[in-house]
Design a protein around this nucleic acid. Sequence first.
RNA 1: GGCGACGUAGCCAAGUGGUAAGGCAGAGGUCUGCAAAACCUUUAUCCAGCGGUUCAAAUCCGCUCGUCGCCUCCA
Length: 492
Amino acid sequence: MIRIYNTLSGQKEEFRPISDDAVRMYACGVTVYDHSHIGHARGAVVFDVVVSYLRHRGYKVKYARNFTDVDDKIIKRAAETDMTWQAVAEKYTQEYIKDMDALGVGRPDVEPKATEHIPEIIDLVKRIVGNGYGYESGGDVFFSVRKFKGYGKLSGKSLDDMVAGSRVDVDGRKEDPMDFVLWKSSKPGEPAWDSPWGPGRPGWHIECSAMSFKHLGETFDIHGGGMDLQFPHHENEIAQAEAATGKPFVKYWMHNGFVNVNREKMSKSLGNFFTIKEILAKYEPEAIRLFLLSTHYRNPIDFSDQSLKDARAALGRYYSMVEALTEALGDYKGGAYDADKLTGVARKLHKATAAFRSKFYEAMDDDFNTAGALGAVYELVREVNRVTVDKVLSDGDQVLKDVLSASRDALSEASGILNLFQKTPADWFNRQAAGADASGMPSDDEIKALIEERKQARAGKNWKRADEIRDILDAKGIELLDGAEGTKWRLK
RNA sequence: GGCGACGUAGCCAAGUGGUAAGGCAGAGGUCUGCAAAACCUUUAUCCAGCGGUUCAAAUCCGCUCGUCGCCUCCA
């Protein structure tokens, strides 16, 4: 049984989709006016895992994530550069897709764009106005929050408190300071579409309601986004949708926590953000993913170089386990075994694998607790190491090999869900950090020649020369690994 | 001012009523010509502080202190 923390109720609830086997889910994507930062990556990765896990648990999921491609910030950005607003939107849409692909975030089933849903948006505004929840004033159409009695139910705010907070701008055209724009009239040169209220463009919140209606229906299962979208964005989406349909909009609301820097929110306005590309230039995509998934999605996570380095080291530990496991099993495919007849290490490993499966699924079922799930992964990693390290498995160890391959299967199932640990150990350890300067690197042949020379030196007990060669390569960032079957090398 | 979240080892981080997962770093060991890498072992008498409820609390309740977020564009 999967339990989800629902922002709407403020507690974890048993997950019961509206229809038995199909889940419809929407996550707010980005407004495409700039490169995306690691905070955007967190939301995308988190909901990617949610979708992946739901699918693994047998649900058919239709997942939509939008692009808001018409907005004040895009217009502003276009004015600052010599690009059209369409070119700005298109450029950053493509950049976002590149970033997500690099991070191993699966493509949603639908990636709707606001500009491709203008007729739907206009229809929705008409419905809202027709139902008495919206009004036109000076070419703009506003939503009347006082008329919608559920206003504030998501964010737990009351209209009177918000107004008392007095941080709302006073706009003479609004009937109430908290009313928000559904449709705004366009000034000359701004993007504009014909509408019953004259040429204009959508307000900020309306596109998500219109697009989710079109692709998922008027009531759907899960809607996700960052914590800061709770108010006003999602509150307004609910108001618009339910004012139009009179039906509940979304069953489960999920909000991911922020990425902080020095314990402060990372944001465009504070200027303390790191773009995904900047981080990808220094760290492997899987290190970033592991970092993002190693904290529960609702808690804040602090970004730092140390955290990324920790994640990278943890990945190395996993891949070392895979390497040893692969060597121990060789080509052996594994087969069924009788758990009741196991003894010694085989029995212990079998139990550890079973424990892993239950802990992993228990954690994921509990509001997608990836941090707990990863803890379970590493417990099994240790157990596997105990078996494979310094141990040559002979043909007589067939049962142990069967158990080992069952452990391998369990780990790879979990890895698939998280989309982590997907490389081969060779690829991981010979990684070249993206963007690293490859000049001055000796060729593979040169390295091999030096290793061979060192081997001769060592055979002749010429330790001085052997150490010299090791130092030469070390200075080039190449690390030598002396093992039983000879010397291997990798980039540090 | 209103609403809310959080405070667990040197660092990161699970656990939310039954006696502290996991990762990084550190220490010891195995291996090695010596190293490195890897692996194993180990590292919180205790979960911000003070009270309370309970047979039993890091986990529930109250208060205090501290940090952060939302209330305005923001993932």
